[in-house]
Computed example of a mutant assay.
Amino acid sequence: MTTPPTTAPTPAVSMLRLLGGFQISQALYVTARAGIADRLAAGPRTVPELTEGTGLRPELLRRLLRTLAAEGVFGYDETSDGVSLGALGHTLRTDVPESVRNVALMWMETHYRPFAGLWGTLHDGIPAAEAELGMPFFDWLAKDPAGVATFSGAMGDLMRAVRADALAALELDGVRTLVDIGGADGTALAELAVRNPQLRGTVFDLPHVVAAAPGLLRGRGVEDRIAAVGGDFFTAVPSGADCYLACFILHDWNDEQAARILGRIHEAAAPGARLFLVETVLGEGTPPEIATLLDLTMMGMLHGRERTRGDWRSLLGGADFRLDRIRETGGPMCVVEATRLPRPEDGHGPTT
């Protein structure tokens, strides 16, 4: 079986591997799109068997799989022409908790081409995606229902892969009603509702995004406690909850835009309502390099960014939320916990 090399590479070789990252990501996309990992779930198969019904050429797929075998994604046996799943291969299956197959599809279909314009971004400050697509990324995505479905699936994958530890760390004792701001297809809130039978809540996102939520909520058996509501969080969010959650949302936006979202949450919530943000915190989390990689993604695709502990304190304080604590979890995401502070114009505020 082909295995990754055991000797330490020279600096030049290490740099060549980094420079070749774009080729690896495209090779992973091909195997994800062809469903190669799913075909190997029951055990090794030969290269010709793997190409059946895919339209892929066996002699070319063989070369691609050799490359990915060196990265630990697949195993390849030259004698039998057999292919098996490597240490990382299961993450491209569709039926495992650690699957990031949808991320492989989404990043290559939406992020790859714009990133060729990163040079321009660092000169003019315009996200490469916006320059490439002629409009903000989310506006472009909304025009493609299939793209929205892929994006929602990728966000679900990310929730399971990098947010699961953070969601498990949420302390919801005493929380009766929760609104998940930007909750997409409801994956996160459905999971929380299953774990917390007392919880009722609302998945809130753009109408074309949240349209997928009712089916998922029915599938998880929580449709009687969790509603799906469409809207724009820059305009207004559902009111009356005693807790608000935003998973991986504020990092998409610059400070002014993030402050507007927090402002809408502040208007909807009563004094003392809790706010949980599941986000990266630069320099914190395990492993911390995920945050810097995501920061680069934000630079190329959107106007957002990842933030430090001080950044979060400043952003929340400016929107009249008190930062209570930031909790590291077993993964790269942290739980940023805050409390809504009253304003003079609140009066008694909305009821919960």
Rank of each mutant, 00 (worst) to 15 (best):
T54I: 10
V83T: 04
L60S: 07
S80G: 15
P58L: 05
G82L: 09
V47Q: 04
T94F: 01
G55L: 12
L64C: 05
T51E: 05
F74T: 06
T51I: 07
L61D: 03
S84T: 14
G82W: 00
A69I: 01
R101Y: 05
G86Q: 05
R66K: 13
G75N: 04
T94Q: 10
L50G: 05
L50P: 01
A70H: 10
A69G: 04
G75M: 00
E49F: 10
A70K: 04
A70W: 02
G86Y: 02
T91G: 00
S99G: 11
L105R: 14
L65E: 11
G89S: 05
E52D: 13
G82V: 02
E49H: 04
R57F: 03
G82N: 06
S80F: 01
L105I: 15
F74D: 09
P58C: 06
P58N: 06
L88G: 04
M106G: 02
T91P: 00
L64A: 03
G72Y: 02
T51S: 04
S99T: 15
R101F: 06
L65Q: 08
E98I: 11
P97C: 06
Y76C: 03
P48N: 07
L105F: 13
G75Q: 07
D95K: 06
A104Y: 14
L88C: 08
R63G: 12
E78M: 05
R101K: 12
E71D: 12
Y76T: 00
R57T: 03
E49G: 02
G86L: 05
L85M: 08
E59M: 03
V47I: 14
D95A: 14
T91F: 02
T67I: 06
T91Q: 11
L50W: 06
T67H: 15
A87F: 09
R63F: 05
D81Q: 07
V100N: 10
G89T: 07
D81H: 05
G55T: 15
G86S: 09
R93S: 09
S99K: 09
R57W: 01
A87E: 14
E78K: 12
R93A: 06
V100G: 02
T91V: 10
S84W: 10
V100P: 00
S80N: 11
S80R: 15
D81R: 01
S84N: 09
S80K: 11
R57I: 03
R57Y: 04
W107L: 13
E52A: 15
T51L: 01
A69H: 01
A104M: 15
T79G: 07
L105G: 09
M106W: 14
T94N: 08
V47F: 02
R66E: 12
P97N: 05
T79W: 02
A87G: 06
T94K: 06
A87Y: 07
A70V: 03
E98M: 12
V47P: 01
P48C: 05
H90P: 04
D77A: 11
H90R: 15
G53H: 08
D95G: 06
V96H: 11
S84K: 08
N102C: 13
R93E: 10
A104T: 11
